[in-house]
Design a binder for these strands. Structure first.
Ligand SMILES: [Mn+2]
Ligand SMILES: [Mn+2]
Ligand SMILES: [Zn+2]
Ligand SMILES: [Zn+2]
Lengths: 143, 143
DNA sequence: ACTCCAATTGAAAGTGGAAGTCATAATACG
DNA sequence: CGTATTATGACTTCCACTTTCAATTGGAGT
């Protein structure tokens, strides 16, 4: 997975005539090694621990590149910060967001996806993407 | 509907020991007379046309009050602006958001709601609220 | 290896929407 | 009325990005 992502990003860099830099390598490593759904700030701080000279703006711009390259996806969970998650090839999932501890679980439900398609169809609406999030209290927080 | 909303807000004002003001009346009228899903700025500009002396902050604060009173609901559709829609008693719906013209349609699907509950249940997750939005091209924009 | 130029970087400044401040004004009620 | 309390509006601050810019770097072509 990590290999694949690294390859995809390298190809993207090449295709776009961009340059390979050590900052981008470091940020990619940090991103791939992390828990999913981290904010720019979170990744920046994590990376800064071992690379104090990498700037916020570079992390910010690099995450945008990851999104363009298709290895990251931008998300908004209503906490005022943009979060990035790993984006595998064509994979899709929705989220359960705990309003207590902030943890984010993922799920997939093909039936829901189909019903969404039906709703859109019946109105002549062409779906490009969708967002389904369940907010509430996670299992751990309920104990 | 409008009558009901007005009543609900008046009761809310009374219950909380707040004051009835002409600004709040004007803003409530403007809100109820509007298309749904408008941003603070949009409502502010709309109102300013006939009431140039009403400030942005008052519209901002009053919409928050509407939300607390239960006659409005705060929404985020990813365009960076908070939008408010009319909130009827206990009613719920999800949205189809056109990425071309920005129009927002509403829909309800009980089966999807049930499946969401099942997903949550199977993980011991307690749903407090959810968000389901389909982004794409609306019927009009496809023609 | 060396040049050269476009791409990149990081610090700093800028942006836009939301949220807070505060002096003045308006409301509720005895 | 008179007064305590709340509301208003102009302005400021906050915050999460987003852009700018001078200095640096990557790497294609000598
Ligand atoms: Mn995820
Ligand atoms: Mn709606
Ligand atoms: Zn939790
Ligand atoms: Zn449209």
């Amino acid at each position: 997975m990590k290999r694949a992502m690294t390859k995809i990003f390298a190809d993207f860099i090449a295709r776009r005539g961009l340059k390979s830099t050590k900052q981008r390598d470091i940020i990619l490593d940090g991103f791939l090694a992390s828990d999913r759904h981290l904010s720019i700030e979170e990744l920046y701080l994590k990376i800064r621990a071992s690379h104090p000279n990498i700037g916020y703006a570079t992390v910010y711009r690099t995450l945008k590149l990851f999104a363009e390259a298709g290895i990251a996806r931008e998300m908004q969970f209503g906490d005022g910060q943009t979060r990035y998650e790993h984006a595998g090839e064509g994979e899709h999932h929705d989220h359960l967001v705990c309003t207590r501890c902030g943890s984010i679980e993922e799920f997939e439900n093909e039936t829901i996806e189909q019903l969404q398609a039906e709703v859109a169809n019946s109105r002549g609406f062409l779906i490009e993407k969708h967002r389904l999030e369940l907010y509430g209290v996670c299992g751990s927080c309920r104990k």
